[in-house]
């Protein structure tokens, strides 16, 4: 029986590249080799730590744009050429009206983002009546807003991120549609609003877009996205990073909560 354990053997054992017989023979010899024991133990810690380091990426929800890439059925060069063409057209038209921050289409900016930010600027500063229905009547509020928007709507819980629900309200919006606004507040009194509107969006699913908007000398960080027929806008003076975390949390909670009750129109 050989005595010295080679480095190659230690790695092969760690990486389960040995046959069961080789592995048990290795374990026997390992008992007499303290240096090899130490090396193996160290390598194991490193392995586990590397796994731990990148596990969060593995567990993340797959970004929509990557899923979309795989779901394009007739993937060919024509499609690529077409998408390039659309991009150029989109870029040219958006460059004209100076809204390059809002990719894909104008209706997202006009019919979702703008009314949401406006509603935020109106109600988030309101002292007496920031909301129509207070968080204490949350169940009633969810039921009511769901009924009016003809979808299943549930105010997401952001307590984990230190934002408590203040309440919600129903709002008129563009294209003869309604929208729901949920308001949240943190310990410092900082308020954020989540604006949700059902509509016929050109894109059924977008990535979470981040942008900054200025209204009356006040800067807001805005995140907006579309998931199926619901458009979402999160507005606040919170940092972009906070907005991103909150948006992802909302996105995940809402994708579990909402199922349209009735077809649009």
């Amino acid at each position: 029986m050989r005595d010295d354990i080679s480095n190659t053997e230690i790695h092969a054992y760690l990486d389960q590249q040995l046959t069961p017989e080789q592995a048990s023979e290795f374990e026997e010899r390992l008992k007499k080799d303290e240096l090899a024991q130490k090396k193996l133990a160290d390598y194991q810690i490193i392995e586990q730590s590397i796994d731990g380091l990148y596990q969060p990426v593995f567990d993340e929800k797959i970004p929509a744009h990557l899923l979309n890439t795989c779901e394009k059925k007739s993937y060919n060069y024509l499609a690529i050429a077409a998408s390039v063409l659309f991009f150029v057209i989109g870029w040219l038209s958006s460059a004209q009206n100076n809204s390059f921050n809002t990719p894909n289409n104008n209706s997202l900016a006009q019919d979702l983002e703008t009314p949401a930010i406006f509603a935020h600027s109106i109600y988030s500063v309101e002292k007496l009546h920031p909301v129509e229905v207070k968080a204490t009547k949350q169940e009633h509020m969810n039921h009511w807003l769901s009924k009016r928007l003809k979808t299943t709507l549930k105010a997401p819980n952001l307590s984990k991120h230190e934002f408590e629900l203040v309440g919600g309200r129903l709002l008129p919006s563009t294209n003869e549609r309604m929208a729901a606004q949920f308001m949240y507040q943190d310990n410092n009194g900082e308020r954020i609003t989540l604006y949700i509107k059902r509509g016929e969006w050109q894109t059924k699913e977008t990535a979470i877009n981040h942008t900054q908007k200025q209204i009356k000398n006040e800067r807001f960080n805005v995140s907006f996205w579309v998931d199926d027929d619901l458009g979402y806008v999160l507005t606040g003076k919170t940092s972009k990073a906070t907005n991103q975390i909150l948006s992802e949390s909302i996105y995940q909670q809402m994708s579990l909560n909402t199922t349209p009750l009735v077809a649009l129109r």
């Binding site: 590397i50 380091l53 990148y54 596990q55 990426v57 593995f58 567990d59 993340e60 797959i62 990557l66 899923l67 795989c70």
Partner: peptide
Amino acid sequence: YIPNLRRYAAA
């Protein structure tokens, strides 16, 4: 395999 690819790419 997207999660596998993303993890490896991130690292």
